[in-house]
Amino acid sequence: MSEKIVFEKAKERIEHIEDVLSSVAAGDLDVRIEAEIEDDLTGVEEAINILIEDLTYELKQSKKMREELEEKLSKIEDQQKTIIRQQDDLLELSSPVSKVWDNILILPVIGTLDSQRAQIMMENLLQKIVDTGCTMSILDITGVPTVDTQVANHLLKTVTSARLLGADCIISGISPAIAQTIVHLGIDLSVIKTKATLQDAMIYAMRKNNQLTHGKIKSDHLSETEETE
C-alpha cells in the first residue's frame, strides 16, 4: 500500500469519527464507530465508543433523577395545597360563636390572633349578634398567649363594633402576666368591661341579663357574688 492510500484511508476514518461525534452532539446516542481494521486509530475509535456508552448511561441516570425530583415536587405541591386548605378550614373552625344562655354569646379565642383571624372572628361575632339578637357577648382570651398592641387593637375594634350593634362585650381570661404587660405597653383597655375568668364574666352577664329582664337583680346568689368581689 502506498503512503497516499494509507493517508486517504485515515482521512476517511477521521471524517467518519467527525460524523459520529456530530451526530452524538446532535443528540443521537445510538451511533457507534465501526472499526474495520486494527491499527493506531482503532484505540481512539474504541475510546470514543466507550465515551458514547458512558454518556448514554449518565443521561439516562439524570433523566431518571429529574423524573423522580419532579414527582417529589408535585407531591410537595399537593401537600402545600392541603396545608393551605386546612389553614382556611382552621380559620373557619377556630372562631366559633355560641349562644350559651338567653341573650348571652360566647366567643372563645385560642391561639394567635393575626389580622386575618381577627377579621373573621369579628365578622362571625357581629353576624351572630344580628342573627340571635343577643345583647351580651363574652370574648374569652384564656387561650391567647401573647397580647401585643395589634391584638389589643383588634379586641378594641371588635368590642366597639359590637357596641354599635347594641351588644355589650366582656373580655375574660386575661392572665396576670398579660395584665401587667398590657399596662406596661400603655394600652388603655378601661373602656372595655374585663373579667379575670370566664366564670366571672358569665356571672356578670347573667346578672346584667336579670337586670334587663326584670328591671332589678332578682337572684340572691348573684347579688352575693357582687358583694364578695
Partner: peptide
C-alpha cells in the same frame, strides 16, 4: 419568670410587627 417571659415576648412581637 412567666411575667418576664410575657414581657420580652410581647416586646419582640411589637418589633417584629
Amino acid at each position: 419568670g412567666i411575667v418576664e417571659q410575657t414581657r420580652i415576648t410581647t416586646a419582640v412581637s411589637e418589633l417584629f410587627r
